[in-house]
Amino acid sequence: MLRALEKGADGVCIIGCMEGECQFKTGNLRARKRVEQVQRLLNSIGLDGERAQMYNLSSSDAPLFARYAEEMDERIRGLGPNPMKKKKNAA
């Protein structure tokens, strides 16, 4: 997640299985914790923690995936470009 943001991604969206339905049992719960860690870290260094988001959905639920993708798109457009990207472009 951090690597992507460091390279200039405006946002990183992690999508896991529905809670309680993960083949790896707690993998999606741990992923959520990781995302929360990254959000706190981003806030600590003056970047917007909202650039990292966690969603849960079933693999067959395409309409919900589309809705989440739109939501993420709207969120990062609201936040503006990742400052890392500005820096990369300037270099």
Binding site: R3, I45, M84, K87
Partner: peptide
């Protein structure tokens, strides 16, 4: 170590320290 290093790199970049 990877997370902290990445966070520090982004901190410096965000401060304009190139």
């Amino acid at each position: 170590a990877g997370m902290l290093a990445s966070a520090l790199r982004m901190y410096y970049a965000n401060q304009g320290i190139e």
